[in-house]
């Protein structure tokens, strides 16, 4: 299991790591909306600069972030090519076989792929610098007002954090069982598709068995420790905004103003 998930949390002490998760989510939320309003070179430049500076501040090696985005590169290139051939604006620049490439298409292609790239970069910065649990806590807190309309916010957050908590466990388990079955001669990598699909059964059955067992044990352990829902439950990790968060908010508002001014 050497291929990492996009944006798997990388522990660190950087400024970005220490921000309140709610701050990060809010900023990224607005960033994602605002990027669709970019329409000039300078407006893209400002947003890109913001993203790159944020990425640098995480102190995660750039090579690692870029490699983590590998699966989406293909999608970005595809988006670019699609725009290149479909858009028909501006002057004809050159011709490839029977396709005419317009200057507008080139600009449009660049702009859209950049948008796409920045979107994914910013969201993966969130997951790279924030533990899944912190993200869940933040979501629970931010959805808090919905409790008034009897929306099960706490239950939803609990479900999320339990699933997130067990993803690494399940991945480890998958690796362990697939190694055990590989030792018994199962070949997951080569051979005809039909055989490879059949090879999944010896992997899935033990995985399901252990997942159910784990779920049962977890429920029992929670009850044994007095869990009875979110009502009146206090928190171990209280979320608290610090001066760092206010500083980011202020500079982000500044970036937004600059951005609005730079729009065509």
């Amino acid at each position: 299991m050497n291929n990492l998930i996009i944006g798997q949390y990388v522990p660190g002490e950087s400024m970005v790591h220490q921000l309140d998760p709610r701050t990060k989510i809010t900023v990224i939320f607005f960033y994602v909306i605002v990027i669709f309003f970019a329409n000039s070179f300078f407006s893209y430049f400002i947003l890109a600069a913001f993203a790159f500076i944020s990425a640098m501040l995480t102190r995660i090696p750039a090579g690692y972030i870029i490699r983590g985005l590998k699966p989406v590169w293909l999608l970005i290139v595809f988006t670019f090519l699609l725009h290149l051939f479909v858009t028909k604006e501006g002057d004809v620049l050159f011709r490839i076989f029977s396709f005419y490439v317009y200057s507008g298409a080139l600009i449009q292609g660049f702009a859209i792929s950049l948008r796409f790239f920045l979107l994914i970069l910013m969201t993966s910065l969130l997951t790279l610098t924030t533990t899944p649990i912190a993200i869940t806590d933040a979501i629970e807190d931010m959805l808090g007002p919905l409790k008034k309309v009897r929306f099960p916010v706490h239950e939803l957050a609990l479900m999320m954090s339990i699933s997130l908590r067990f993803i690494p466990t399940l991945m480890q388990e998958t690796e362990k069982i697939s190694k055990a079955q590989a030792s018994r001669g199962v070949d997951f990598r080569t051979g005809p598709i039909k055989d490879r699909i059949k090879a999944i059964v010896p992997l899935l059955v033990p995985l399901f068995v252990s997942a159910f067992k784990r779920a049962e044990e977890l429920a029992m352990a929670m009850e044994a420790r007095g869990y009875k829902g979110g009502e009146g439950r206090t928190k171990f990790r209280e979320l608290q905004l610090s001066s760092r968060d206010y500083a980011l908010f202020i500079s982000f508002v500044f970036v937004l103003l600059l951005f609005w001014w730079a729009r065509a």
């Binding site: 055990a180 079955q181 018994r184 001669g185 033990p206």
Partner: peptide, 17 residues
């Protein structure tokens, strides 16, 4: 190689299916 080298992992009962 795997036919010649049998490996009993920790908690091998997890591999039964």
């Amino acid at each position: 190689l795997r036919k010649h080298v049998g490996v009993v992992f920790q908690y091998p009962e997890h591999q039964l299916f």
